[in-house]
């Protein structure tokens, strides 16, 4: 059903334009809140692109670097296709993490998978039960910082930072031990239609 969808988007774009014209710049930044950001991210139901992932290990003073491409279907799954240094297909769904050989690893991985999906979707309502969420910037260049509320979670994650514009561009996860997982997403484009 492309017709109503198009009309819907046009209407949304128009109202956004109108808002921009009528309001002063600082005010428009103020009006940009988490709900708006979530809506904006939700406009792309499925997405593909490339990634680089750098895991810095503080103790060793070294890092594990990898790269590959990804496909993301909102509310369903993200497929993380590792190309270097090893080939591996990892599929994260709200239920589990499944690797290339079809094994569910690691045990209890569904929690991590769910967090990862919620971050990519910008599902702030779900995240708000566990994180303090702060938003800065505007629609074209925003930054979101998440800080765990519970002590148990703070022992594993000290903070998560997301930034981007139309899409999420960077995801950075810091642990109390000083390790960092930095993921850069680039060459992103919406997938044609809603099909995965």
């Amino acid at each position: 059903m492309p017709q109503p969808d198009l009309a819907h988007r046009a209407h949304r774009l128009l109202s956004l334009l109108l808002a921009c014209l009528c309001l002063a710049a600082p005010l428009s930044a103020y009006a940009f809140d988490l709900a708006t950001l979530q809506q904006r991210l939700a406009q792309t139901p499925s997405l593909a692109g490339k990634f680089t992932q750098q895991r810095r290990l503080a103790d060793l003073g070294t890092s594990l670097d990898s790269s590959g491409n990804f496909r993301f279907v909102r509310g369903q799954r993200v497929v993380w296709q590792l190309e270097r240094p090893v080939e591996e297909r990892i599929e994260l769904t709200p239920e589990a993490i499944v690797n290339g050989s079809g094994d569910r690893t690691p045990p209890g991985g569904e929690q991590v998978a769910r967090l990862f999906l919620q971050l990519l979707e910008g599902d702030w309502q779900a995240l708000a039960s566990r994180f303090e969420i702060a938003l800065a910037g505007d629609a074209e260049a925003w930054q979101v910082t998440l800080t765990p509320k519970a002590k148990a979670l703070r022992e594993r994650i000290s903070s998560i930072a997301l930034d981007g514009g139309r899409y999420i561009d960077h995801l950075t996860l810091r642990t109390p031990g000083g390790d960092t997982l930095a993921v850069r997403l680039y060459d992103q484009h919406p997938l044609s239609g809603d099909a995965p």
Binding site: Q53, R55, L64, S66, W80, L82, P85, V86, E88, I90, L92, I97, N99, G100, T105, P106, G109, V112, A113, F116, L181, V183
Partner: peptide, 9 residues
């Protein structure tokens, strides 16, 4: 090796 580079590990 695969495990070392998994985003979830």
């Amino acid at each position: 090796l695969r495990r070392l580079f998994s985003p979830a590990a």
